[in-house]
């Protein structure tokens, strides 16, 4: 894949996604540049998760393009598996492999996709696990871990092959309130390291602190996009204002 300095890491162009009659994404354009943290906000059903799944090519697009470093990876002639190797996605429900130890979950992609020898992959995975604070859980099975621990393993799994782009799909939504902090702290650390991140979240306070840019999605359209203090503090669109008012009323900002 050719990388030019001006191309964004991820560019979404006119993305349309329908499920039967429902149009979930209705012509979305979005760029994520290197070292940028872009946060998607919007109510449930606004298309945040679908946008992330389309970016990862887990869903068939109905129109538009997904460009990775300037290359159209949504082209059916492009090998989607190859494109996915440049991305790491973390899901709301963790989706760890229950029949594998934590260590095997993290080393799976490096070993079988990237051809890293077992020993090297294990060493690197143990290193990653200690960075997410789970060095002692390497040989446990996912079922024995708390939700927050499982989600940190999922993040380590996504980091294991050093993807250019990280996609986080509401990664704290399935967690108990007291476990949200440990996962967000990890994301904050990754953002601080200059990782390129596109994430959907309901944690507005967190978005305010970490995001370089906040995008508000509503009804499958990208309504408003800009720096967090502008979108969250002084939104220009009525729909954004209405959404934020509901959030504030619920005491979540």
């Amino acid at each position: 894949m050719s990388t030019s300095a001006t191309d964004p890491v991820l560019a979404v162009r006119g993305l349309v996604k329908r499920y039967g009659q429902a149009t979930v994404l209705d012509g979305v354009d979005l760029d994520v540049h290197e070292h940028e943290v872009v946060v998607l906000i919007g109510s449930s059903g606004s298309g945040k998760s679908t946008l992330l799944r389309c970016a990862n090519l887990l869903e068939e697009l109905d129109d538009g393009q997904v460009l990775l470093d300037g290359v159209d990876v949504s082209d059916p002639r492009v090998d989607a598996d190859r494109a996915r190797r440049a991305m790491g996605i973390v899901f709301q429900a963790f989706n760890l492999f229950p029949h594998m130890s934590v260590l095997d979950n993290v080393t799976l992609a490096p070993r079988v996709v990237h051809g890293v020898p077992r020993g090297t992959a294990d060493d690197r995975a143990r290193d990653l696990l200690s960075r997410v604070g789970l060095a002692d859980k390497a040989d446990s099975y996912p079922d024995r871990l708390s939700g927050g621990q499982q989600q940190r393993v999922a993040i380590a799994r996504a980091l294991a092959y050093d993807p250019r782009l990280l996609l986080f799909d509401e990664i704290t939504s399935a967690l108990d309130p007291e476990l949200v902090g440990e996962v967000l702290a990890l994301v904050r650390e990754l953002a601080g390291q200059g990782r390129t991140i596109l994430m959907a979240t309901h944690e507005m306070g967190f978005a305010k602190q970490v995001a370089d840019r906040v995008c508000f999605l509503d009804g499958g359209k990208l309504v408003e996009s800009g720096p967090p203090e502008q979108v969250l503090g002084d939104p220009t669109h009525e729909r954004t204002r209405r959404f934020l008012r509901r959030i504030i009323d619920a005491g979540r900002l």
Partner: peptide, 24 residues
């Protein structure tokens, strides 16, 4: 979601079946 997780890591259909789906 197990398939999605495997495919997102770059595993192809065959490896997804062999390493993730069939053992479970």
């Amino acid at each position: 979601s197990q398939l999605a997780a495997a495919r997102s890591l770059g595993l192809d259909h065959r490896k997804t079946m062999r390493l993730v789906v069939l053992p479970q």
